[in-house]
Amino acid sequence: MELRLRERRKQALLGLLLVLPSFLVTVVVVVFPIVDSVFLSLTEGDTGVFTWGNFQALFADPGAWSDIAFTLQVVGLTVVLSLGLAYALSYYMTFSTSRGAALLSQVYQIPLFIPGIVAVYALIALIRDTGALNRFVHLFGADFKPGLMYTGTGIVLVNLWFNVPFAAMIIGATLGGIPRSLLEAARDVGSGRVTIFLKVVFPLSAKSSLVATLFVFMNNVSEFTTPFLMGSNSPHMLGVALYQKFAVFHDQNGAAALSVFLFALSSVAGGVYIHSMMKEDRWRGQ
């Protein structure tokens, strides 16, 4: 008994030792900058004295409010549309036996392997008012202007390119893991397609849908490349507003306040994610 206890303690120590390097890296590249930003956001630029002024200035600026509203609108639409499309896509790929579904499941991840900036420029070249689409329609004598550049809709559209495959990957993994015997059992007792979906498939995949939602939210709330190249001059998405604050206006403390706010937004999503993970662990532990 005594021996086994010591053995277990040794193993626990080894485990801690093994996670130590990644823990230290996290402290240096994640925790330290966060603490530093919080500190900067609560001090005055020239004097270094404690102040709430940076946050007061941030929230007193009507431009900042319209940036926040615009960001939440774009991210909200991106989340809803990506999740809807990704769910439909992975449902089709998992449960259809058609050749189309087989082909789609081979290629749907391709967007994830194309570097972001390349994809953004390619999509811009396609959808801008004088882009490839416009010129193609010109062949048939019409003048089609998509009107998507410098609009929130355009940004959402490009976001879908990245986020639909990403969310489909997460949801698809869960759908693929649902035992077929469950579906067959439900069918045997006379359930229709809709009932099977509502009573079996959806409850079993709800959790991974939630995870996908949170990740899509966190990935997009602070995005920079797409809104910088495709967004309008005002309002800005928060990533662009943040960049402008520190790199153009040289307002370090104001930028720190905005980044702390952005971090708070993301950590709400992070908190929900951790909470849902802990719940699962408790369930497993029983």
């Binding site: 801008r128 008012d129 004088t130 009107g147 550049m149 355009g154 190249l229």
Partner: peptide, 23 residues
Amino acid sequence: KASGKVQYPVKNQGTLDLLAAGE
């Protein structure tokens, strides 16, 4: 104007691209 409203392109290259495209 783009997409129905006045737009100031991003970066020095942004306006040069518009000139090159004849916009």
